[in-house]
């Protein structure tokens, strides 16, 4: 592919993009509320301490949750019991507690995890970079059963991975296991027949776009709610699919990124060998 753009424009464009991200990150660090500015009682719900919400609600209603003479952590905040599929406009409407902490309260940690995975995948690809060797002659005929079966099973596995990371705020799961499930489906396609090559440009585009989407969602939160990776969408009714604000958007981005990265790792491990894998 020929590229006629002069080098100066390319460098200026790259500098421009980097400068925008640097300014955004600097603004994030400057304008984020300091440790003493946050009311911690508003950030952590009392019911999230217990795992079994139903029992905790019953105990709190009957007044047996705390011992005599012991003051609850958020005694001055009025307490309302949370009911599934009825209560609306919570501070974070995710039915899955782990997801709401990982993506919403500690969203910056998740950004760091995604960066770590990206660095690991790029390290593997840099180590195994080389000329692709095609097998000279076919030693054995590939198995038709494996070929057809893996192609059919790939659709089901792909759908299951998408289900895992779209329903991350309702059921256990999330972006990382969904991406890993999708990557194992692609591994099955590799084992199905010789010389399978995924669409490399598609993998690159998916990975870059989803990584950029994560940061852009965080920047939208920064410019609208004054905090990086803050929830800027309405939280809705707890338990519905369209609830919990931006958690499902971020998990879709993470799932696409992890799936394409792990698929690229598998491709770079399998692709440039002379052997047959079917």
């Amino acid at each position: 592919m020929k590229n006629d753009t002069p080098k100066v424009f390319k460098s200026i464009f790259a500098l421009f993009v980097v400068a925008i991200f640097m300014i955004g990150l600097f603004y994030a660090f400057v304008s984020m509320p300091k440790g003493w500015g946050v009311n911690v009682n508003n950030r952590v719900s009392r019911l999230y301490i217990l795992k079994n919400v139903r029992t905790a609600t019953r105990l709190l209603d009957s007044g047996k949750f705390f011992a005599k003479g012991m003051k609850p952590l958020r005694a001055e905040v009025p307490y309302k019991p949370i009911k599934f599929k009825k209560t609306a406009n919570l501070e974070d409407g995710a039915a899955n507690v782990v997801t709401s902490i990982v993506v919403d309260y500690r969203g910056f940690d998740t950004l760091g995890e995604v960066t770590v995975l990206f660095l690991a995948a790029s390290g593997v690809m840099m180590l195994l970079f080389g000329k692709r060797v095609k097998p000279k002659r076919k030693k054995t005929e590939p198995s038709l059963i494996m070929y057809v079966g893996t192609r059919i099973a790939f659709a089901v596995i792909f759908l299951f991975g998408i289900y895992i990371f779209v329903h991350g705020h309702l059921t256990p799961g999330g972006g990382f296991p969904g991406g890993a499930v999708i990557a194992s489906g692609i591994l099955g396609l590799f084992l199905g027949r010789n010389g399978y090559t995924p669409n490399h440009a598609g993998l690159k585009v998916f990975e870059s776009l989803s990584g950029i989407a994560f940061v852009i969602i965080g920047l939208i939160g920064l410019f609208s709610v004054k905090s990086f990776l803050a929830n800027f969408l309405p939280t809705g009714i707890i338990g519905n699919l369209y609830s919990a604000g931006f958690i499902s958007l971020i998990y879709i981005a993470i799932g696409m990124k992890v799936g394409s990265e792990l698929a690229a790792v598998v491709d770079s491990m399998i692709g440039d060998t002379k052997e047959e894998w079917s």
Binding site: N96, V98, T99, I164, P172, G173, G174, F176, P177, A180, V181, A183, S184, L187, L262, V265, V266, M269, I270, T273, E275
Partner: peptide, 29 residues
């Protein structure tokens, strides 16, 4: 901890085993 269980089953038991086997075959060759 079902979240961690799903992640461990997908990555630890599924992908990393396959990647280790592929690496072992390449190294032996």
């Amino acid at each position: 901890a079902p979240d961690v269980a799903i992640t461990e089953a997908a990555i630890g038991a599924g992908l990393s085993t396959a990647i280790f086997v592929i690496a072992l075959k390449k190294v032996k060759k």
